Simulated scan of single mutants.
Amino acid sequence: MKLKIYYDGHCPLCVQEMRSLQGKNTANAIYFVDINRLDFSELYPHIDVDKAKAILHGEDDAGNLMYGLDVTYRAWSLVGEKWRVAPLRWPIIRSGADKAYLMFAKHRFKISRWLTGQERLDCSACADLNKSE
Rank of each mutant, 00 (worst) to 15 (best):
V71A: 04
V71N: 03
T72F: 04
T72M: 05
R74N: 06
A75V: 07
W76N: 07
S77D: 09
S77V: 00
L78W: 05
L78G: 10
L78C: 09
V79T: 13
V79W: 14
G80V: 09
E81W: 03
K82R: 15
K82G: 08
W83E: 14
R84M: 11
R84Q: 13
R84H: 08
V85N: 01
V85K: 00
A86M: 10
A86R: 10
P87Q: 06
P87G: 05
P87I: 08
P87V: 08
L88F: 10
L88M: 10
L88I: 03
W90C: 05
W90S: 00
P91C: 12
I92K: 14
I92E: 01
I92W: 11
I92C: 11
I93A: 11
I93N: 04
I93L: 15
I93H: 08
I93K: 07
S95A: 15
S95M: 12
G96F: 10
G96T: 07
A97L: 04
A97F: 04
D98T: 02
D98Y: 03
K99A: 15
K99S: 11
K99C: 06
Y101V: 03
Y101P: 01
Y101A: 01
Y101G: 01
L102Q: 10
L102C: 05
L102I: 04
L102R: 13
L102W: 01
F104G: 02
F104I: 04
A105N: 05
A105H: 03
K106W: 04
K106C: 04
K106R: 14
H107E: 13
H107R: 05
R108W: 01
K110N: 13
K110T: 12
I111S: 05
I111Q: 03
I111P: 04
I111F: 06
S112A: 15
S112R: 08
S112K: 07
L115V: 14
L115S: 12
T116R: 09
T116M: 12
T116E: 11
G117L: 12
Q118E: 15
Q118C: 13
